[in-house]
């Protein structure tokens, strides 16, 4: 790399300036991640030094039904996130791009659930699902008096109840895709119009493919948030009834509480691996490594 004049003279200052960021990176990212990987191969209770035991934590993890159920839940949640959730966000973005009356107000309000604490949001939903005074059953009872479902405590409803706490809240996707849509050159649309394409065809044939980078990003973001989903479960069902709504972060936190650190970190590694698999898979699926234009 060629250093410019200003750069060379100031090199000590430059490194001094970047030092704090590097320190933060080392202590809060690199070191923890290395620790997680290394100690996932050990038995460690926090009192005694960790003892190496190979892949035992992983085989334990894989032999337990709670982890397998978590994986199954994650698979379903990821499918729903990648299709319905992202689809809804993209749909709203397309509608916004038509600039209907009041779309800015809707956009503003749509952001609100995302600026609220995840803990508070989970608790709000706990009340929405409450059978005695909750919004949902209250509304359903207007049409079906005597309706009685305890959403968060009954199989199979609990799984869907947890899903509903995030399903429609896709504002981040909407904003990313909307920004992308706005940057599509108007000439492209005009050309398509002249060729006699309908609005739907334009959306499907031109806009969607051109937005595939932002849609791919959305899919990655929404699936990785499902892998890391904690509050939405911990503060509603705690993974119950039975293990119906368990996921990996809950397993991880329970293991930390039980001071089973090696096991906890094996769960953490599984989250990493799943995240990377998602990244690679979606990249390949959406051909995100190729240029759009």
């Amino acid at each position: 790399m060629k250093l410019d004049k200003l750069g060379r003279k100031n090199l000590p200052w430059v490194y001094l300036f970047i030092l704090p960021s590097v320190v933060v990176f080392l202590t809060f990212y690199l070191l923890p991640i290395v620790t997680v990987f290394v100690t996932s191969l050990t038995r460690w209770d926090g009192y005694n030094p960790p003892t190496f035991q190979g892949f035992r934590n992983y085989s334990l993890l894989l032999s337990r039904s709670v982890f397998l159920i978590s994986l199954r839940n994650l698979l379903w949640w990821s499918l729903i996130a990648g299709t319905l959730h992202v689809g809804f966000g993209v749909l709203v973005a397309f509608l916004f791009s038509r600039r209907p009356v009041g779309w800015k107000a809707v956009r503003t309000v749509y952001m609100i659930p995302n600026v609220i604490s995840g803990a508070a949001w989970a608790m709000i939903y706990r009340f929405i699902f409450n059978n005695d005074f909750g919004l949902l059953n209250g509304m359903i009872r207007v049409f079906a008096p005597g309706f009685n479902v305890k959403w968060l405590f009954q199989s199979p409803y609990a799984f869907w109840a947890v899903t509903l706490t995030w399903l429609f809240y896709a504002v981040i996707i909407t904003l990313i895709v909307h920004a992308d849509l706005m940057s599509i050159p108007a000439e492209l649309h005009e050309a398509a119009h002249i060729d006699g394409a309908t609005g739907l065809q334009i959306a499907w044939r031109i806009d969607l493919p051109l937005c595939r980078f932002s849609i791919g990003t959305s899919v990655i973001l929404s699936i990785t948030s499902r892998i890391a989903m904690y509050e939405a479960v911990a503060l509603t069902t705690r993974g119950g009834p039975g293990d119906d709504t368990m996921n990996i972060p809950i397993i991880l936190v329970n293991a930390i509480t039980d001071m089973n650190y090696g096991y906890a970190n094996a769960a953490a590694v599984s989250m990493f691996v799943l995240g990377i698999v998602t990244l690679v898979l979606v990249n390949w699926l959406f051909r995100m490594n190729r240029r759009v234009y």
Binding site: Q154, S155, R238, G240, P241, G242, N254
Partner: peptide, 14 residues
């Protein structure tokens, strides 16, 4: 933890 978490399943018959 587990006793309380499994009980709903006994109650709803699953």
């Amino acid at each position: 933890e587990e006793f309380g978490k499994l009980l709903p399943k006994l109650l709803d018959g699953s």
